[in-house]
Each structure stands twice: as C-alpha cells, then as structure tokens.
Computed example of a mutant assay.
Amino acid sequence: MRRLLARFDRAFFAEAPPERLALLRLLVGAFALVYLCARAVHLQRVGHLPPGSFKPIGVVSVLSAPLPLWAVRGLTGAAIAAGAAFVAGYRFRVAGPLFSALLLWVLSYRNSWGMVFHTENLLVLHVIALSLGAAADVYSLDARAARVSWERGAAPAPDGRYGWPIRLFCAITVTSYFIAGVTKLRNSGLDWATSDILRNYIAYDNVRKVALGDTHSPLGGALVRYRFLFPPLALGSLAMELGAPLALFSRRIAVVFCGAAWLFHLGVLLTMAILFPYPLLGVAFAGFFELEKVRDLRRPRRAGAIIEDRRA
C-alpha cells in the first residue's frame, strides 16, 4: 500500500515548469472570460423570467427564491472582473479562487431556469483546478514584482507544485469522458455499439430541430439513410470514453485520446449541429501537452539565420 501511495505521489506531483501551468491559465481563463462576456446579456436575462420557472441546482440549491435583478447583474459583472484578474494573474491567490467560485455560481444560477448546459461543466472544473495552484508565478502581473529576484538567478524552476494542478486538470478531463461512457453502458448496454441507438438519436434530434425551426444538420439527416455507418461510430465513441483514463499514463495514448475526442465533438457538430466550443478549440485538452515548448519552435530558424549571417 505504501509503495502504491508513493508511486501515486510521484506521478501526481511530478515536476512541471511554471510556464506550462501559466500558459494553461491564460488559455482556460481567456476562454472563460470571453464566454462570460459573450453570454453576459443572456446570463442576466433570467432575472426577467417568472419566479415559478426557478428550479435551483448545484450550489444555487441554497436559495429558496430567485435573486433580485440587481444581484444577478452584480454577480455577473463581478465574475467578469474576477475573470480579467485571473487571466492577468493579478493577486491570483485571491482572484483565482474568487473567479472559480463566481463562475460556478453564475453558470449554475443560469442553469437553474430550465435547460442545463452540460457543456459548461468541464470548463468550470478546470478553472477551479487551476485556481488552486500556483498558476501565476510567471506570465502574470504578480510575477512583475518578483522579476528583480529572477534576474539574480532565482527564477521559478520546474517543481511539483506546478505539476499537480496540470495532472488534476487532465484527470478531470478524462473522468468526464469516462463517466459519459459508463452512462451509455448503464442506459443502453452494448446495444449502444451494436444497434441503431446512435442513428435514431441523430435522426430524432434533427427532426425535432426542423419542427421547432431550430438550426439542424442536413448532413446528419442525409447520413441516417446509411445504417451501416453508425455501429462503428458508436463503438469508436464508446472506446474513446471508456479508454480515456489511459491517457494519464502515456503521452502517446494522451495524444490519441485528444485527437479521438476532438473528432468526436466535430462529428457531433456536423451531424447534430451541437457545438462544444471548449473542446473543439482544443482548450479542454491543453493540459496534456508541453505548452511551453511552443515558444521554442522558431529557435532553430533563428539559430540557422545567425549561422548564415556569420558565413556571409
């Protein structure tokens, strides 16, 4: 048992450079901030809905009645302000947890009025994970105050405190997909991969949208004519979801998982016109990659240019 715990400790708290965690903060924080700003009007509009439509979920369950409109607007504005501080890395020890709490509340409050946007869950959990770590030690306003000491050779070095938030980020990602796969098995069993369940679901979704005058997928409507296409697609999605935890143990498997999950969401968009922007933009999978190496892509070119200049 001790050996198992020791191996878990070494894996979960594996060293990582501070730049990787900071870049992850910038990517996820920027997405969350833009998302809040883009939906600000919609998030506040629930204040005009009939009180009888209020069905509190999650953390909002502490409420027995809707908040006044001024409180809804104030919390939305506060979430946007805290999001800006999160991205900028300004007083992150306070701004990080504050933003995660406000983001959780604001989105949960909106989802307490009918339709639940499950696409937001992974984003909120990722923000919470990053807010708990030292994600603003570099590439932040907080880091400016420490720049003098860094110039003397005390710059943050790779450390486990930069690694564990990234590992938690990745663990949350694979868990969300694994739960989706288990849910498919619980609801449909292996029939999900051997029957017309996926085909019928795509057909139903598009017919319903056409009837309601909503955006639908002409491609999905055309493909349901070809029955043989859907069992392999259903089996592939199930394998990707149930195999997701393996991505935590191998970088190669992680790359395969990220690619398969991205293709899955692309397929959902093309066949059902359902957009999952967070994974489709790749932000949801950013924790699996060495983000800090992106800046090194141009270095060989620069070195080559210097050599050529010297020869000339």
Rank of each mutant, 00 (worst) to 15 (best):
L4H: 00
A16F: 02
R20Q: 11
A22M: 09
L24T: 05
Y35C: 02
C37A: 11
H42W: 11
H42L: 13
L43Q: 02
L43G: 03
Q44E: 12
G47K: 03
L49P: 02
S53G: 02
V60L: 06
S64T: 14
A65P: 01
L67S: 08
L69T: 06
L75A: 11
L75W: 06
I80Q: 06
F92Q: 02
G96Y: 02
A101Q: 05
L107D: 01
S108W: 12
S108P: 14
G114F: 13
E120C: 12
V124P: 02
A129P: 06
A129G: 04
A134F: 09
A134Q: 13
L141T: 01
E151C: 13
A157Q: 14
W164K: 09
R167Q: 13
V174Q: 03
S176C: 08
G181E: 00
V182A: 11
N187L: 15
T194S: 14
S195G: 14
Y201L: 15
Y201V: 07
I202M: 11
D205H: 13
T215K: 15
V224W: 02
P231R: 05
P232L: 10
G243M: 05
A244M: 07
L246V: 14
L246P: 03
S250F: 07
R251A: 11
V255H: 07
F257M: 13
C258I: 10
A261I: 04
W262L: 15
F264E: 10
F276D: 09
P277D: 11
L281R: 09
F285E: 07
F285Q: 14
A286P: 02
D296H: 14
A303P: 01
D309V: 09
R310D: 04
A312Q: 11
